[in-house]
Design a protein around this nucleic acid. Structure first.
Lengths: 234, 234
DNA sequence: GCTCCGCTTTTGACTATACAAATAGATATA
DNA sequence: TATATCTATTTGTATAGTCAAAAGCGGAGC
């Protein structure tokens, strides 16, 4: 493994593991030169690669810092709902519909590849944009991975945003599907039973352990994902 | 603009414009050193950046070549349907349901930001995977951008794949939605009217001109998009 | 014909150095 | 006090080289 790859993965590991958190300053190039006994060019190459991936930001004179996670730059701009709505200039609020601590059932445990008796926090949350229901969020938070969730009421901060602050820079897997609204979902989203809904499922890991599993269901007539692929801009 | 940025964008432009096509060999580092009057490191930096973006592949001894387009590495792995099905080990075939040359209507022209009287090839194509309808593809090809489409019957090659060969490395915009199947769509996809369907709309440009506009509608129970975000692997 | 060996080309990784640009913070000036 | 200027730090870009690894190619030997 080359030196710059080692520097890259070492720093990436520290960020992904939560050892270094967003805003933390990472060693300046000169310090890494000493640590790895290599030239500044080599360090610079590793840091530039990290910067291009959006994991760190670099500023002259002040140094390099762990960036704020964006959940996903590779799978379109799927941010947490509240941030997304605010950026688009919409008014966003949310309601916690259900919140309970349980143990994982057999089927779910298998689906998440987690032990069947793991303690989880199960949340149901309704997102309302400009006064209309925009999404229903069904979430499982693994309590052994995020013990602080046990005391969090999510009264003032939506679960997705809260988790981003607690567990930054994790791995995630996404699935996007179209599903028909069942009776309950339709009632909550104030739409028709059978209405086409866009469903985003995301499972998030940190250090190989599942952190959260969430399904976000949007009414098809009020939501879409968009992404522009422009190869330009270096 | 720095030298390596100039090299990067110069080559990118040649690829995006179709000047250099997939498989074409691009000048070796030494030639670019002479052309741009710079050091090899600078050339190497530009070419490595292009390689990391997947636009070129580099091989020792043989040189660097324009890569085959993947449509989109940034917006999940949305390839053309036949390639995708084959990779997953499924049997794929397709039927052209309709093929006619028309002029763009007023509404469509506005939607595509193209002149209202532009000549287009309008296609409707059914994709069948493992014997079941998997997608209906409604496509518009701008004939001034791809004149050769006028003579192509698409009997043996699906339109998406054919276009990839004709117009490699373009810009694209994607929208993913959930829609309810109308009567016609439901009949073609052999599903129920009102059934949730996953719709992918893609508009593709080259040199600022629309090349094609396509809506691919999948039955919700037979299709999903999946993407894993793994920050690892340099 | 076939296999193995060495030559050559091309990329990959790295060093040591240089200068430029940005800018936070200290200092000097009005 | 407010503003302008200087300075030191850190990153950004570039040079001119070295050595290494991969791999195509041709020739020697069988």
């Amino acid at each position: 493994m080359s030196i710059y790859q080692r520097i890259f993965t070492d720093i990436e590991t520290k960020i992904i593991s939560g050892d270094w958190r967003p805003g933390d300053r990472i060693p300046v190039e000169h310090e890494l030169v000493v640590e790895y006994q290599c030239s500044r060019m080599t360090v610079s190459k590793a840091l530039s690669a990290l910067a291009e991936r959006g994991m760190i930001v670099r500023r002259r004179k002040t140094g390099s810092f762990v960036a704020s996670p964006q959940i996903d730059r590779t799978v379109m701009d799927i941010q947490d709902i509240s941030t997304e709505a605010e950026l688009a200039g919409h008014e966003h609020r949310f309601e916690i519909l259900a919140r309970k601590i349980e143990r994982l059932g057999e089927a779910e445990a298998q689906q998440l590849s987690e032990p069947a008796d793991a303690e989880v926090l199960r949340l149901q949350c309704l997102h309302i944009v400009d006064g209309r229901p925009n999404a229903i969020e069904r979430r499982i938070i693994m309590l052994d991975a995020v013990p602080r969730a046990r005391e969090e009421s999510f009264a003032s901060i939506p679960p997705g945003k809260w988790l981003l602050e607690q567990v930054p820079w994790s791995k995630a897997k996404h699935v996007i599907r179209a599903v028909s609204a069942d009776t309950l979902t339709a009632r909550i989203l104030q739409t028709e039973r059978g209405e086409a809904c866009l469903s985003l499922i995301r499972q998030t890991w940190q250090n190989g352990r599942t952190v959260t599993y969430v399904e976000i269901t949007h009414p098809g007539d009020r939501f879409q994902f968009a992404g522009t692929f422009h190869p330009t801009a270096i």
